[in-house]
Amino acid sequence: MSDRDRDEEGRARSARPRDGLGRPLPYDAVGAPRQPEGVRRSPEETLTEAQRLLDAGMPFHAHEVLEDAWKSGPEHERELWRGLAQLAVGVTHAARANTTGAAALLRRGADTIGPYAGNPPHGIDITGLRTWAQTLAGSLHTGHEPPPAASIAPRLRG
């Protein structure tokens, strides 16, 4: 029998609180409020909530909101939401000083959303996000103080 934390369906879920960058804290610590999983939101609600979290310096939590859209959205938009979630995780890694992981995810996210540039859905600034991601990925340097997440957060819509 495993002593891992489990949800109601028996899936492994860490009950440890997390900080604003998603790092686990001791069980008795007060962490950032967690985003509920599996919430179905409209694209407008998803973008508004993800932007709020990015602006608050909580890109890990923004990624969870975008991941819900990726997993529950229409098939033709799944790669869009997956790419946006990758960008949020890239910001998370940059703020955690994982420059290699950050650069890889920022570039992967930029590539993933690229096919939507010709007809950007929901007012998302695909071209601006791709430029932002490539620029940030190229500016990250090992050994430097990591930037605060809110200071490098993108604008999802133009």
Rank of each mutant, 00 (worst) to 15 (best):
S72A: 15
G123Y: 10
L136I: 03
H141N: 09
P115R: 01
H141P: 07
P120N: 12
E64M: 04
H61T: 01
I126D: 04
P115N: 00
H141F: 15
A85V: 10
A104C: 04
A103R: 05
N98C: 09
A110R: 01
T131E: 11
E64Y: 02
H63N: 13
N119P: 12
I126T: 08
W81T: 09
Y116H: 09
A94L: 05
R78A: 10
R52C: 02
A50G: 05
L87M: 12
I126K: 06
L54Y: 04
L84W: 10
S139R: 12
T48D: 06
G83W: 04
F60S: 09
L84V: 12
R107C: 12
R108I: 15
Q51K: 02
M58L: 14
T127C: 08
A97R: 01
E77W: 10
E67R: 01
Q134I: 15
L106E: 04
K71C: 12
A85Y: 14
R52T: 08
T100V: 15
D125N: 13
L140A: 06
H93A: 13
L53D: 02
E77N: 11
G123T: 12
V65Y: 07
G128E: 06
L129R: 00
S72C: 09
A56R: 10
E77V: 06
R107D: 13
G90C: 13
W81E: 08
D68L: 10
E79R: 07
L66T: 09
R108M: 15
R130G: 08
R82S: 07
E79S: 09
R52I: 02
A97P: 00
D55L: 13
L47Y: 00
A88H: 00
L87G: 13
L84H: 07
H63E: 15
H76R: 15
L53I: 02
R78W: 12
G128H: 02
I126W: 03
L105D: 10
G83V: 05
W81S: 07
A95T: 07
T131S: 14
L47I: 00
G123V: 07
A50H: 01
G138E: 03
T92N: 03
L129I: 02
G109F: 01
G83C: 03
P74N: 13
D68I: 11
A69G: 08
L66H: 05
E77Q: 05
T127A: 13
A94E: 03
P74E: 14
A69T: 04
G138A: 13
A102G: 06
A69Q: 05
S72P: 04
T100S: 10
G114Q: 15
S72E: 14
R96M: 14
T48E: 04
N119E: 14
E64S: 08
G83F: 08
E75F: 15
